[in-house]
Amino acid sequence: MSQKRKLLVHIDALYRSALYLTKNENSADDLVQETYLKAFKSLQDDKEIRNVKAWLFRILMNTFINKYRKDKREPSLVDFDSVEAFHESIQEEVVAPSILDGESVLETLVDDDIKMALKALPDDFRMVILLSTVEGFSYKEISKIVNCPVGTVMSRIYRGRKMLKEKLAGYAQKYGFK
C-alpha cells in the first residue's frame, strides 16, 4: 500500500470530524482536502510518523483553527461569563440530577437530536468530544492534537459532556419528559 493510501484510510474519520466542526459539507470537503495536501507534503520530508491518525487530526484541527476561526474572527472561543468554575460544576451536579437519568429518556431521543446538540456546542468543546468519545484518542493524544495541557482537555471533556447532556435534556422535555 502506498504511503498516500495509508493516510487515506482515515478519510472517513477526518471527514466526519470536519463536518461536525465546520457544520457545512462544502467546508468539510475543503478542510479534509487541505489536511491531506498538507500531510502529503510533509510525507516528502521523510519524517517518521508514529501515530498517523493523531498526526492527521492535528493537521485537521490546526487547519480548522487557523482558517475557519480566522474567517470568523474567533467567535467560537468560550464565552467566559457563561462558564462557571470547573470545580463548582462538579458540586452542582450532585444536587441537580439530569433528566437523562430517567428511564427510556435516552432511547426516545433521535439521532438528529444528538447531531443538533453536538453542533450547538462551542468549538473547543465539540473538538474534544469528537476526539475522545468518537475517535477514542487518549487525553494525552488529544492534548497534543489541540495543543493544550491535559488538564484543559479533561476540563473541556467534562464541561462539553455536561453541556451536551443539558441540551439533550432540553430536547427530552419537548417529548414530554420532566
Binding site: L8, I11, D12, D29, L37, L109, I114, L118, I129
Partner: peptide
C-alpha cells in the same frame, strides 16, 4: 450516551468523490 454519540457521528462517511479529488489535486 457516549455510545449513542459515537454511533450517530460514525454514520457519516466521506463522499466517494473526495478521495479521488484529493489524489487528483
Amino acid at each position: 450516551l457516549q455510545k449513542r454519540v459515537r454511533e450517530t457521528v460514525c454514520e457519516v462517511k466521506a463522499p466517494a468523490y473526495l478521495e479521488q479529488m484529493i489524489l487528483k489535486r
